[in-house]
Design a protein around this nucleic acid. Sequence first.
DNA 1: TCAAAAGTGTTCTTATTACACCCATGG
DNA 2: CCATGGGTGTAATAAGAACACTTTTGA
Lengths: 229, 229
Amino acid sequence: MANLDGFFKSAFTVDNVIFGFDDGDLKILLIKRGEEPFLDYWGLPGYFVYPDENLDAAANRVLEELSGLKDVYLEQVKTFGAVDRHPAGRVITVAYYSLVKISDYKLNASSIAQKAKWFSIPKVSELPFDHSEILEACFNRLKRRVRTRPIGFELLPPKFTLTELQHLYESILETKLDKRNFRKKILAMNLLVDLNETQEGVAHRPARLYQFDGEKYEDLFSKGFNFEL
Amino acid sequence: MANLDGFFKSAFTVDNVIFGFDDGDLKILLIKRGEEPFLDYWGLPGYFVYPDENLDAAANRVLEELSGLKDVYLEQVKTFGAVDRHPAGRVITVAYYSLVKISDYKLNASSIAQKAKWFSIPKVSELPFDHSEILEACFNRLKRRVRTRPIGFELLPPKFTLTELQHLYESILETKLDKRNFRKKILAMNLLVDLNETQEGVAHRPARLYQFDGEKYEDLFSKGFNFEL
DNA sequence: TCAAAAGTGTTCTTATTACACCCATGG
DNA sequence: CCATGGGTGTAATAAGAACACTTTTGA
């Protein structure tokens, strides 16, 4: 093998755009940087990938250290490798996004997690490094993906109302949807289980609660069914 | 900044799945490996990314060294980083695919290019390293992308017949399409210019030649038009 | 009794599918 | 004159879009 030593002087990181849905609002989790450059800026959670660690594992680790959550939906989006993107040397970063149920998320006592905060996406301004570009790429991917895969449910609690689901789609797609058409379409797929329960303590007619039937989806999917909203 | 030296011992490469269309057949360009491991195996063209080189530039370089072609359609697909995927150390690879007009492609006199050959995709068997997985990811991406962006034309000569175009889609999507419906749909988009020329020297009624109007597409796209086939 | 959100059908329009015959050319 | 692929239209079906009122609850 030729001498390749000159190439083994780089590093790579993962950055993770963590989406959550709360209060009718799509949010991302940012952390306050504790070091230069961009000290005290809010940025995407991320870290170097260890030599014996796979990329997906690194992205999961970053998420778990911050939130304590495991087994969440995670998808690789794009790799960013501009020559001068990192001051410490040649560092390329593999961008992921993940979808968490904000209700599961407990602000960890760990020092890293104490510096974390949820931000509504429209309120996120310029981020350090190329993080704005990364966020945009991940948000765009989510927008496309959410229409063809039933991943929206990853952002909702196990029991949800159809209106919550609709608002979730409206936040992600940044558009208004027609209530009757939305319900017709989503119920026609037969992937929601009507729990015969209703909301409690709301100052209006209480909504029915539904649950997503993941097993049924997997079964239909393997037979060629395509989720489409 | 904390001491990060331990992380700066990795390398990264680009691998490029180069698609071409010829003879009614979708093909990819493979090169015969000149070194261990996998000596004499056919594998994807790829190389290390230089320290001062951006990722897209590296993918373009690999393509140009092999084919002499510049300014071709190139899209990043996914990054593969299994810990043990490369024997020389920790090497992650950023996978790209590109679309070339086979008619433009001249087998370069360079030693690297002389070892290259076009393979019909179904005839590609196991590839070295994780190249089979990379090929699959890129082919899947192409299948999706070709339905929502007018990139199929990148694989055809500037003047083409509707039947050629249909066969191209059929090869990529691995399905048969209805001739009348296909023509109706593609012509309704008004993105093809009828050149008022016909094929010559064919032993049947000669077909009309068309050209893709890229400027018109860009214009419509910026106004919200979505290509969809 | 009021405010607030839940729930529910029909019509119209548009897109998709299925399908078969005549035409122009070279050999 | 035959073989080969080029070129064309219509009807049936399915999907999507638009749209307004009644119901249930807590305050």
